[in-house]
Design a protein around this nucleic acid. Structure first.
Lengths: 165, 165
DNA sequence: CAAATAAAAGAATTTTATTCTTTAATAAAA
DNA sequence: TTTTATTAAAGAATAAAATTCTTTTATTTG
């Protein structure tokens, strides 16, 4: 067969084998490992490791590479989980809320959740005074927030920065 | 002065200037930027960028470099926040709980928190059935858990993987 | 079993990180 | 101020890593 028709192209992402998974596990704990080092751990030479990693990137299994910073040292040691409800639940109001939240740099994570509240926010600030300012100046000025309930992190027990594969 | 006495050594970590902060911001969004690329963004040549980044690593501002994976594609798309209380709050029981939690790979984050609950867990699994199994087989078998309340993530609005600096 | 395909290896090349040396800028002392 | 240290940046040289290319080895399939 000389030519493949478009419809015959395989668009589905290929299945990951054991080595791919091991590479992903290694990289999510230390993305500075060289292809040579990775190869030593999975019993391959640099080339196939390189090609596998590139494929994992291309197929979207790896979203990006990031430096994980020390929040304490950067004066953002106070972590707060804030549950909020909206007064109304129309699409437009929801959209505006999302837009407002996206603009707040202190909000590092935001989830739409089940249960008594609508959203769960993770907020990082220096201290309680800064959190108070955040609530009063920023969160408080967002329209349509019905209620907000803050839970303070007293200690971080575990934080993997990793998908459990 | 020929020699410095030990007591004169400066053990405190040096203050970060504006360029350091910009480098940290850039690196937490993309740690694959080369020192040359970083230099272009902060108006420095490769060498000082290299030295600054090494210093940031050495002084602990950068904890590690990691690949951020796509949880959905890796079949861990169901995120659950689980609030738990302990039956008793002695040090030994707390320690045992922490130890047990550390062993559960599905628990990707765990915080000791204020409020009605003692701990907040972030759990990643494939689907509801897998979550049920997790609760029954793993969480359920941990001693001294008083109550557990699950909140399900319906949508991820924002997730920076970054300290807001 | 032979042909075709895919995966891995090894060598060659390019790019990047890293080191070393020189120069410029800044701060401290005279 | 001027001189002298000290620090930061730059540029050139080197080492290490990524990336590409070619060959070899496995695997699959007809």
């Amino acid at each position: 067969m000389l030519f493949k028709s478009i419809s015959m192209e395989n668009n589905s992402t290929p299945r990951l084998d054991d080595i791919d998974l091991r590479l992903l596990r290694l990289l999510q704990h230390n993305s500075n490992l060289t292809v040579k080092e990775l190869g030593a751990k999975v019993n391959l030479s640099a080339t196939p490791v390189f090609e596998r990693v590139k494929k994992l990137e291309k197929n979207g299994f790896i979203k990006k590479y990031a430096a994980i910073l020390n929040a304490e040292k950067l004066n953002k040691g106070l972590v707060v989980f804030c549950n909020v409800t909206l007064k109304e639940h129309t699409r437009t109001i929801g959209r505006q809320f999302v837009k407002d939240i996206m603009a707040l740099k202190e909000v590092v994570e935001c989830y739409n959740i089940s249960g008594d509240y609508d959203f769960l926010l993770k907020i990082m600030v220096y201290d309680m005074k800064e959190y108070q300012n955040f609530v009063l100046d920023h969160l408080g000025s967002i329209k349509n927030i019905g209620s907000a309930h803050s839970t303070f992190v007293m200690g971080e027990i575990k934080h993997d920065y990793a998908v459990p594969i």
